[in-house]
Design a protein around this nucleic acid. Sequence first.
DNA 1: GGCAGATCGATGACATGTCAACGAAAGCGT
DNA 2: ACGCTTTCGTTGACATGTCATCGATCTGCC
Lengths: 165, 165
Amino acid sequence: MDGPRWLDEREDRAWRGYRRMRRLLDLELARELTQDAGLSEPDYDVLSDLSETPRGRLRLSELAHRMLWSRSRLSHHLSRMQQRGLVTREECADDARGSIVVLTPAGRQAIESAAPGHVAAVRRHLIDLLTPAEVDALGALTHRVVDHLADPGLRATRPQPAAEA
Amino acid sequence: MDGPRWLDEREDRAWRGYRRMRRLLDLELARELTQDAGLSEPDYDVLSDLSETPRGRLRLSELAHRMLWSRSRLSHHLSRMQQRGLVTREECADDARGSIVVLTPAGRQAIESAAPGHVAAVRRHLIDLLTPAEVDALGALTHRVVDHLADPGLRATRPQPAAEA
DNA sequence: GGCAGATCGATGACATGTCAACGAAAGCGT
DNA sequence: ACGCTTTCGTTGACATGTCATCGATCTGCC
């Protein structure tokens, strides 16, 4: 029962800064995206991931996996986007349970006209404010954290849960 | 007329890493917080900010301002927290429109018992994975971005909508 | 073949966040 | 004192995200 190791001044500064940046950056990017392209950030992410595939088609689960979304969330969101004509669903030939999400021409149009402005906003509010060394540091650090979180073994580090099969 | 300046490989790595970290870190911290303390992240943040004040009391607007929340959101959330006995509202003496959010003993108890575990989680999944130099870099970079976003003049930087496609 | 369990995607109930509007009360200039 | 405008916090309608569950289908194993 050691006293908890609180964050020291620098750590606290980093943590608070991260959370504040997160919030403000999100608000601003979402605001511009809505205003300029009529898309929400989730919309943009769906369209973006879809458009990165050869023919703009992906199994729903595969898309959910890439986006780190639950299938449920994606299914709900796709229904809304489908009503707006941005995507459609097709039956999957080799798996009758599955459905394939397909980018419509309107969806392709939407992402292609939104992308330049969005990238510019990301630059303006983040990337271009950083030195090259900071960009690299951010890349390195975030990927390390992601790898750590993606590793199921990480939770063994926690005090309590020790059980294993 | 310039083709949009897309992100180069390093910038893209940083940007994708950031978004992925954001999502995974959030999920994990929220998961542990709920499991260990029965609080959501928004709950924690409210209680945390309140507990940092001398007597656990703040004007609703002041709290909303600190948290970067809308008054509406905070009002809704407080209603839920109030029903769980974590906070109460009091009338404001010097401004009859206002209300003062007050941390209850139960709320104080909740944040005090949740904090050590939460800080430990933040360390385990983020801070302790970083070198001291990275912690400083993260602090510097996030604060720069925050300052930039907080500056109302920043939007003047946006290109005029004069360009035709 | 046929059964048991896993996976897929959809759905409804519910929790949470956003947005526009509101009544009440301050501020402010006259 | 008087209006006009702004600010405060609340509210209701609605958009979005989560969670548990479902029927359908696939998979592996006998």
